[in-house]
Simulated assay, not measured.
Amino acid sequence: MSTQNDQGEESPVLGVVLDEASKKPELTATVEQIAQMLAVIEKDVLPVTEQGVAKGNKVFGAAVLDANFGTVLAGTNSETTCPLFHGEVKVIYEWSKIVPASERGAAAQSSVFLATHEPCCMCVSSILWAGFHTIYYFFPYSVTTAQGIPHDINTMHELWGVNSYRKRNKYFSSRCLIDLIEELDDSVPEKKSLQDTVQRLVQAYDTLSNKYHSEKASNPNNTLVLG
């Protein structure tokens, strides 16, 4: 079977092979690890995101954590500086400045990448290319869309005809923190406290999202390429 390329020439169609046998295991996390990641978002990422939104940037932030879930580096969206500086990409860029090139592969593989929002196609690819195997995120795509930023799903649909990347593949495994919390048994004593933290974060990010949308049109540094 063949198809025509942009020049009208015949070219073979490459089959897509899903190697289920080599995909990474499903991520889990202890109650303590979940609580630590929520604390990183609230104490390390959120404050810099508040500063970023004040300059006209979107609400997406991220952090690199060590194997013990301690913060190595936290950052936020800086699209007013460069359109490629989504929160995840900006964090990888800054992280690469403090980790020698010869050590980055091993460092990434032994680290945890934490995103406030499920990474878009550019960001999740960047995380992959940086070498991270473990990705946690707080808000899933459905919440990002509800916050008025549907570009994550739209770009994947328009470019590749899919609604999401494969969350478990041979490169990495990703998991939503909110899902992990909801899956805890109600008998777990920390579940209510974790849910309270989730609600606090949801309210904080809703406030920031509303601020961004209300001010973006009047911000001369916002290109609004996608809105």
Rank of each mutant, 00 (worst) to 15 (best):
L208F: 08
V162F: 03
D186N: 14
K170P: 13
V99M: 11
E215P: 04
S22K: 12
P47Y: 08
F69I: 06
C123E: 05
N219T: 08
G87A: 03
S22W: 04
I149G: 02
V59Y: 09
N221P: 00
V91N: 02
T28I: 15
M1Y: 14
A39S: 12
C176M: 10
V16A: 14
A35K: 05
A29Q: 09
T49Q: 15
A115R: 01
F172K: 06
H86F: 10
Q195C: 06
R200S: 07
G70D: 13
A29K: 08
G75F: 07
I178D: 00
T76V: 07
V188E: 15
T207A: 15
P220I: 10
D152F: 03
E183Y: 02
G70V: 15
L208M: 11
Q7L: 14
S174N: 01
Q36G: 05
D206F: 08
K170W: 07
I41H: 01
P25D: 04
I41S: 05
V59T: 15
W95E: 02
D186T: 06
T80I: 15
T71K: 08
P83M: 10
V99Y: 08
E183V: 06
D185M: 03
P119R: 10
M1I: 12
V124S: 07
Q195R: 11
T116C: 05
K43F: 06
K191W: 08
T116H: 03
F113Q: 00
L224D: 09
D152A: 11
C120I: 01
V188R: 08
P119N: 04
Q109P: 07
L159C: 15
D19T: 08
V99T: 14
T145E: 08
I98L: 13
L177K: 04
S22C: 07
F60Q: 01
F69V: 12
L177W: 02
V198P: 04
P220E: 06
K211L: 15
S22E: 12
S218L: 11
S187E: 12
T28V: 13
S142V: 01
C120G: 01
V17G: 03
M37R: 02
R166D: 11
V89W: 05
D6E: 14
Q203D: 15
N77C: 14
L226S: 13
I34R: 02
G87P: 00
G131E: 09
G15K: 15
K216R: 15
Q51D: 11
H86Q: 04
H157V: 09
V143K: 01
A106L: 13
S193V: 09
P47E: 11
S78G: 11
K211N: 07
V112F: 09
R168K: 12
A54Q: 14
L18H: 09
S125D: 13
G8H: 04
E20P: 00
V64K: 03
G227Q: 10
E9M: 14
Y93Q: 14
Y165I: 01
N68L: 12
L84Y: 11
T116Y: 07
